[in-house]
Write a protein that binds this DNA or RNA. Structure first.
Length: 826
DNA sequence: TATGAAAGGCAG
DNA sequence: TGCCTTTCATAT
């Protein structure tokens, strides 16, 4: 017997309805309804999309409340049972809504909307003025207008119409009542399956020969086309036309005679069609070190247990080749593999490596694709047409059914954390999936996150280290420059004497230089030296950054986009001694132009890479040697390979060290190590200079030595001392409100409540305080941080308390959010 | 979140 | 009274 009821999570984002609802399954849909089915259900007085999360034979509501499923949306349920469970785990883990958790797993653009379409009951259209025409002339006119609108060819939707013409509301209602206008519900979805017309010749050999003979001599095109189709088999009509240089008329004629059959066939939008040769590349020969790593991975995949492996190897140690061969081993076992790559690294070159090795067995998912392409790639995964999915964060949800391996490359990258609800971390989700599939989770990085490295320490992950560089090049020579000494030596430039000398030297030798500075704009702030005034953003609690764009001198806020023109007199005391301080990329560029007028400089930051694809373009330009110096923010740290670079300079290594975030040392170390890795990747000997005012800091010292272990030992000690992650889980609540007092009041209320309910030794509620960014876009922000060693004990309390407070705060036009395992604390 | 019904406000 | 806006409850 089929189950009678479906438990459905509806696409309505409100706390009150964030639970499954029971619906009757009509017999004619029974075959298509299962866990994971996406459907349309009546909800209140509208129709909404819903997701089946369970089936049952009993409904726990009164019979008169029960309603019936209206329609099933997809041929194949978009979610597997595992993914439905995963969405439940996510909404639980990250305290997000159930509907939001389900939607995070589905490709963007799949979400259906229902709209009410208005139609005329008959084709009469507007009427001539009636004899008793002065009944209510305004009403009559509106009625005529509506009828005219509806008798046109373009569809009219109720919601849209009433938004544009609220005055027609009464008339619409009246005509619906009278039965002259009918409402019909339509389902629309951003992505649609695309179809093409395919022509095929269904004739038997005999009939075909006869047909050819029958064709009169002047219909030579028909003959040609028919023969072509016969020879080439079923082909899209558009391709037939192109190949035979004809028009649709010929196809129609052949079709009318019944000699060819036309059929609508689903078409795949292939983002990489014809981009790569069909010839697959052979695996490379592994070094001994790589072979050992590979063997361990294969062994763990064979073990039939979920395993976590941390593969630590410097840039150029050949991690990617290990991934590729492990994936091959995985698919050979009949299982599927997911590869996650940071969004910014998902370049055509990266995709190419996978496509060259595995061809059409790879589906690629990333934000550069159109929604349609993404949807089609996703469908290939869901249908089991591919066995490998490569993509950014959200590819972790690839709907495979037998996963053997999940690879997360550059696992320490921040982009694996989703910043809006549900605020999941791909690494955590991946592990959850690995547990379900008894799969291997392979984390790769040159500078692992403290979380992953610590997991290895505790024996939760196997730790494999690749010590040598694949191409046997020595690591670049790194030198720390103490900028305090420069100042003492009366060098007030942002470039140390050594850096200037080396840049000059590289220019002479026609070698390339990369300069890294983690701050865009021209200067970081402007300050009046008479009264101490600093220009601040009116919406955010942050100083404004000075930018020069053309002739305009602007002050900009990097958080909300506010901009105003700069000043020459202090607005506070009218003193002329107001000027800019601090260094941004723009200023470095100017200084470079002054010091090295002949050097060609490319600047890369948010301001110069605004347009889509310009990022890739600038890197390409540099790679091709069209510039001598590449200057940029952290986005240049991840460019792939620059053979001609022999000098890398971190202009101001301290900038990221002073952020009010316990991970700032980790970030700084990772960045500097990564940047240093850009130098001397080939035969040129690389030099790296790190300029700093804090040369003794362990993050800088370890980065200079390129010694991860050294950094890890010191950092983990500090984390242990302060009880910070990875030794605990950190949960950050943020209250935001236009009024400072309201935000503060709510965070205090929450603090009191949590302190009262969480007395256990598992949790530690830190005092509520203003967020480091205490005002953002006009909203005051307060933080409440919770540290706990055992989240499972804390979670039930939070899921009971948090929604209540979030709702109350919303009622006061505020916002209360929660971030479990927050990665950036600002 | 989105809806309709109820309640309240105001012009005529 | 009719027509508008605001408020409120509610969803299987």
């Amino acid at each position: 017997m089929n189950p009678k009821f479906a438990e459905v999570v509806v696409d309505v984002h409100a706390r009150d309805v964030d639970r499954p609802f029971d619906y009757r399954i009509p017999p004619e849909l029974a075959a298509r309804v299962g866990v994971g089915t996406r459907l349309i259900v009546p909800f209140g007085n509208r129709r909404v999309e819903g997701y089946v999360v369970g089936l049952s034979d009993e409904a726990d509501v009164e019979a008169e409340k029960l309603k019936e499923i209206l329609d099933v949306l997809d041929e194949q349920p978009p979610l597997t049972e595992e993914l439905v469970q995963l969405s439940e785990w996510m909404s639980h883990q990250y305290l997000s809504g159930k509907a939001a958790a389900v939607q995070a797993l589905l490709p963007a653009g799949m979400r259906a909307k229902t709209a009410v379409r208005l139609r005329l009951a008959d084709k009469r259209g507007p009427e001539a003025a009636q004899s008793g025409g002065n009944e209510k002339s305004r009403f009559f006119e509106k009625k005529q207008e509506l009828l005219r609108l509806l008798s046109g060819n373009s569809p009219v939707y109720k919601e849209q119409l009433l938004k544009e013409r609220p005055d027609l509301k009464t008339v619409v209602q009246r005509l619906i009542q009278d039965g002259r206008v009918i409402e019909s519900h339509e389902i629309t979805q951003a992505v649609q399956t695309r179809y093409v017309t395919v022509a095929d010749c269904p004739l038997s050999e005999n009939d075909f020969v006869q047909a050819i003979e029958q064709i009169p001599a002047r219909a030579f095109k028909q003959k040609e086309v028919l023969q072509w189709i016969r020879q080439n088999g079923p082909t899209a009509v558009r391709d037939v036309l192109r190949a035979t240089q004809t028009t649709y008329a010929v196809i129609r004629a052949l079709s009318n005679k019944g000699w060819i059959r036309l059929e609508q066939v689903e078409e795949r939008r292939d983002p990489y069609a014809d981009r790569f040769s069909s010839e697959l590349e052979k695996p490379l020969v592994l070094t001994e070190e790589q072979t050992n790593a590979f063997d361990s991975i294969v062994e763990s995949m064979r073990s039939g247990k979920a395993c976590q492996i941390l593969l630590q190897g410097v840039t150029g140690s050949g991690k990617t080749e290990i991934y590729l061969q492990s994936i091959a081993a995985c698919t050979k076992q009949g299982k599927q593999a997911i590869v996650l790559v940071p969004e910014i690294a998902l370049t055509p070159q990266m995709v190419e490596r996978f496509k060259l090795r595995f061809g059409d067995a790879v589906a690629v998912l990333h934000s550069g694709l159109s929604q349609g392409e993404r949807y089609d790639e996703w469908k290939r995964i869901r249908r089991g047409e591919v066995s490998i999915a490569v993509g950014a964060r959200s590819a972790v949800f690839a709907p495979f059914e037998q996963i053997g391996l999940i690879v997360i490359d550059e696992e320490h990258e921040l982009s694996y954390k989703q910043e809006d609800q549900p605020k999941y971390h791909a690494r955590e989700v991946a592990w959850q999936r690995a547990l379900h599939h008894s799969a291997t989770l392979l984390l790769g990085s040159a500078t692992p996150s403290l979380e992953s490295r610590y997991a290895a320490d505790r024996g939760e992950a196997r730790h494999i280290v690749l010590a040598s560089r694949f191409n046997k090049n020595a690591l670049p020579q790194v030198q720390i420059i103490d900028m305090r000494e420069e100042l003492k030596a009366a060098n007030r430039s942002m470039f140390s004497r050594e850096l200037q000398r080396l840049i000059y030297d590289r220019l002479q030798k026609k070698e390339q230089t990369i300069l890294f500075l983690n701050r865009r704009g021209h200067s970081t702030f402007i300050l009046c030296r008479s009264c101490g005034y600093v220009a601040r953003c009116p919406n955010c609690d942050i100083s404004l950054t000075y930018h020069e764009s053309g002739q305009f001198e602007m002050l900009r806020c990097h958080y909300c986009g506010h901009s105003e023109s700069s000043v020459t007199l202090c607005p506070s005391c009218s003193s002329p001694h107001i000027r800019n301080f601090g260094t941004g990329t723009q200023r470095v560029e100017q200084e470079l132009n002054k010091l090295f007028p002949n050097a060609r400089v490319i600047r890369m930051d948010v301001d110069t890479t605004g347009k889509k694809g310009s990022h890739e373009q600038l890197l390409q330009k540099f790679r091709e040697g069209q510039a001598d110096i590449l200057l940029g923010t952290q986005m240049i740290a991840k460019g792939l390979d620059f053979p001609r670079v022999s000098l890398v300079g971190a202009v101001s290594a301290d900038t990221s060290l002073h952020l009010p975030d316990f991970r700032s040392a980790e970030r700084t170390f990772q960045l500097l190590t990564q940047v240093a890795g850009r130098a001397g990747r080939h035969d040129t000997e690389g030099r790296v200079l790190i300029q700093t005012y804090q040369p003794e800091h362990y993050a800088i010292q370890s980065a200079a030595k390129q010694d991860y272990e050294d950094f890890y030992r010191q950092e983990i000690k500090i984390r242990q001392m302060l009880g910070n992650p990875p030794l605990c889980k950190q949960i950050v609540f943020t209250a935001q409100h236009e009024k400072k007092e309201t935000a503060e009041r709510w965070i205090r209320n929450l603090e009191k409540e949590l302190c009262g309910s969480l007395r256990s030794p598992h949790a530690d509620v830190l005092p509520a305080c203003p967020a480091p960014l205490s005002k953002l876009q006009g909203k005051y922000r307060y933080h409440l941080t919770l540290k706990c060693s055992d989240y499972s004990k804390v979670q039930p309390v939070l899921s009971a308390i948090y929604p209540v407070y979030a709702k109350r705060m919303k009622e006061e036009a505020g916002l209360l959010t929660v971030d479990v395992n927050a990665q950036i604390i600002l």
